[in-house]
Amino acid sequence: MEWGDDIYKAIKEAGVGQVAYVPDAGHKRLINACIDDNDIKAVSLTTEEEGIALSAGAWLGGEKCVMLMQSSGVGNCINMLSLIETCRFPFCAFVTMRGQWHEFNPWQMPMGTTTKQALQTAGCLVDEVEDPSDVGAKAAATIHKAFVGQQSSVLLLSQRMVPIKTFGK
């Protein structure tokens, strides 16, 4: 997914020091770029909610943290987002969507169809992108909204931009 390179570029231009992630097929290219970058601390999480608290801790220490996850992981974050909301920490996440375009797995539908509302209910400002050529501009704007605008800022990356997954069926 070449658009991952555009997010990586935006992350680098903003001087992000930590990238937290739960492994994800859609983000694979971007995650690998972050792991290979000696100036980025790439932090693999056991559950997405760790990434919310990690982002807060990074900001306490004067460093920007960006989070990469899949829509199913958003559900794991809800109470931890109270830390962002209550303390008005900047927060930035890029979420690859499931449960949208040619989804083959019904288990992905409940979270995939409610990700946006769940994030908004938890206090996040949510933008979406479906056109790969628009990812770079939207990524830069999402990061700017978080760390310059000091908001909780999330960009949802449409499932239409990732290869259709079938498990051979």
Binding site: G17, V43, L54, G57, L60, G61, E63, L83
Partner: peptide
Amino acid sequence: VPTGLGLALAQ
């Protein structure tokens, strides 16, 4: 713990 980890990595 993850808050402390983010802080420790930043500082």
